[in-house]
């Protein structure tokens, strides 16, 4: 473990339910209470019907890789010991996207993945993705 802390998130009342979900091991995203549209990252208005009313939905955690990046240079000293690390952009089956650390070997577009959460700074749970059971990469 590095002595240098990684940056921690700073939740607001708007985003706290997401982080509460993460702490429970689920991807929790906003759902418009008026028209039902899902949205992520958290914001005030539904962009479809402009309602402020919101509920929160727990996603299945299943999705497919949309794109990725492999970090070979640490732009913050807290990540030096992790190099190289891969972040995947995942299209969740509910339609929103999530970013997370990839814990498999090599990603590809369309690779089925499942979310899990890992411990970050200040006790926050951060999303990570592993190849889904049954995929060739699993």
């Amino acid at each position: 473990m590095s002595d240098i802390m990684k940056p921690a998130p700073h939740p607001s009342p708007l985003t706290q339910p997401y982080w509460d979900g993460a702490a429970q091991g689920v991807l929790r995203v906003q759902q418009c209470a008026a028209c039902g549209k899902l949205r992520h990252y958290p914001r005030y208005l539904c962009d479809a019907c402009h309602s402020f009313d919101v509920t929160w939905k727990d996603c299945s955690g299943r999705g497919t890789v949309h794109s990725w990046m492999v970090a070979h240079h640490a732009f913050h000293p807290g990540f030096k010991e992790d190099l190289p690390y891969t972040l995947v952009v995942v299209e969740m089956e509910e339609g929103v996207r999530a970013l997370g650390r990839f814990t498999g070997e090599a990603p590809r577009i369309g690779l089925p993945v499942v979310i899990h959460f890992t411990a970050g700074s200040d006790g926050f749970a951060l999303p990570a993705f592993a190849p889904a059971a049954g995929s060739p990469e699993a």
Binding site: K6, P7, A8, P9, H10, P11, S12, T15, Y41, H66, S67, W68, M69, V70, A71, H73, F75, H76, F79, D82, Y85, L87, V89, L99, G100, R101, I109, G120, S121, F124, L126, P127
Partner: peptide, 22 residues
């Protein structure tokens, strides 16, 4: 800053790389 920086998506090179990769 809230959702991606803590994962290690810090600098523009890292934020833009997925666009180029796709």
């Amino acid at each position: 800053t809230e959702f991606e920086l803590p994962l290690g998506a810090i600098a523009p090179a890292q934020l833009y790389a997925p666009m180029a990769r796709r």
